[in-house]
Amino acid sequence: MKLTLRVWRQKNADAEGAMSTYQVDRISSDMSFLEMLDTLNEELILNGEDPVAFDHDCREGICGACSLVINGDAHGPERTTTCQLHMRSFEDGDTIDIEPWRASAFPVIKDLVVDRSAFDRIIQAGGYVTAPTGAAPEAHATPVPKPDADFAFEHAECIGCGACVAACPNGAAMLFTSAKVNHLNVLPQGAPERETRVLDMVGQMDAEGFGGCTLAGECATACPKGIPLVSITGMNKEWLRATRKAGKR
């Protein structure tokens, strides 16, 4: 395959960025999107140019490191992570636009790499359970009803890649935050911090400068793990419940 790539190039956080055009040839349709970028970078290095910086780690679709907006879609045209996207999803001769996640809470560090530590701070605000750690506890010590376990697992699938923020017209982190809140709030292990968790995580989300939810639904469409839009409804419910309880105290 022969492709034209238009890639966002930006030297550092303070520099002005712009789209640069590159041609890549001899791309196999079996390559992953990241392997295609590796090919481009090898060529750039051979020519003595600065390679395109992009985030990647496991390349198995489970770590949440890769993060590219491809032709206007977070993670590209398939419902998966960029690393699991293959070049067979494109046609020979295509022009592909590659941009970083766009949100003021995710500032660009270089080229296609953005700083997603705002997500870490949302997790630090309440995305954990205070339980003694050590050897795995006996599985039957804390019974969890099957529907609750399924619900928790569905939300635990969130890998924190930030595609929801990138796709949201308001740069909101509602889907990410709701996945984390719902995952822990439904489980008995998460019950002691049920109220403080949702209040603190939403508070941190606002403090990081993410936008609000307008129920556009773009986040759930972009999510490679299929976190549903109704997850946000669930978090709103938890937030209202916690606010009412806090008001009574």
């Binding site: 907006v69 636009d97 003021s104 308001n170 909101a172 993410f210 307008t214 556009a216």
Partner: peptide
């Protein structure tokens, strides 16, 4: 808040969400 949270637009634009939204 929403406009401030997304100051840079994507170069590759796509029609998003429903007309009502």
């Amino acid at each position: 808040r929403d406009i401030k949270a997304r100051p840079d637009k994507y170069v590759h634009k796509k029609p998003r969400a429903s007309y009502a939204t």
